[in-house]
Design a protein around this nucleic acid. Structure first.
Lengths: 135, 135
DNA sequence: TATTGTTATACTCTATAACTATA
DNA sequence: TATAGTTATAGAGTATAACAATA
């Protein structure tokens, strides 16, 4: 198989694995919570652009997060078309727990079946994957 | 952010990107066509195990591929509980075209924004991602 | 008119539960 | 009873289309 085929197979399966590993918050939800926690309150458009999905898709994710009580929305007072999305206390707690579990899984997975050299290679490739996903 | 967080973000976005890049056959469908083309006719269970999804999920993917005319099913004559799934001529053509487009995208993406050293690092990491997705 | 956001709708992907047919 | 497979159903994730409110 070609490199692109193997990359796709690996990404497809890894995506399934990451989802199954930690179903809530979901992958898309956790990404939004991460942005809000790390970078502060943001608009729907900003979040959609950051994740490279349509604004309509992001609106759905935000709606679900709001129903769960993990984010709150308030209108921007300067430009009243805009809506500011903020992470709540409960959302912070969910994010922390999600990150903790994910780190635990990853650490165990790589310590168990990778040599130190392989671990270094994998860690070094992560930023490249990020660039590949966001050109 | 942690390495596992960055990995998850990259995999989530890359998965979206790969899907959008080439919507048909879908990621799950292309994976099945690839197995059948590379390894010959297989049962539902074999395909489900190879992709690490439930047999019920795989049955759905196979059903869609059959409706599209990309695979054919026939009962196993030895064990009549089993169903053998084969790729059709039309399925082969769809797979070839899909692989061609994917290779084109990947080649362009990495040649455009990666140095030779980075390319080597990325290519070397692909098998590690595959292992991470299939322990 | 352009921008920001939303709701409605559809399709893919995957899961669980419940079922049939064969071993 | 155990195994291979299927259908029914639900929910996440994303897209497009159509719409409302504000600039």
């Amino acid at each position: 198989m070609t490199a692109s085929g193997e990359l796709r197979a690996a990404v497809t399966r890894l995506s399934r694995r990451l989802r199954a590993e930690n179903p809530f918050p979901s992958l898309a939800q956790a990404a939004v919570l991460g942005h809000l926690f790390d970078d502060g309150p943001k608009t729907t458009s900003w979040l959609a652009a950051a994740e490279r999905v349509r604004a309509q898709s992001m609106a759905q994710v935000i709606r679900d997060l709001e129903v769960a009580g993990f984010v709150a929305r308030r209108p921007d007072n300067v430009d009243r078309r805009q809506v500011i999305v903020e992470i709540t206390r409960s959302g912070c707690e969910a994010l922390m727990e999600d990150r903790r579990r994910r780190d635990e899984w990853f650490t165990q997975a790589i310590s168990e079946s990778f040599t130190p050299k392989e671990r270094a290679l994998l860690l070094g490739a992560i930023p490249l994957l990020a660039r590949l996903s966001a050109p």
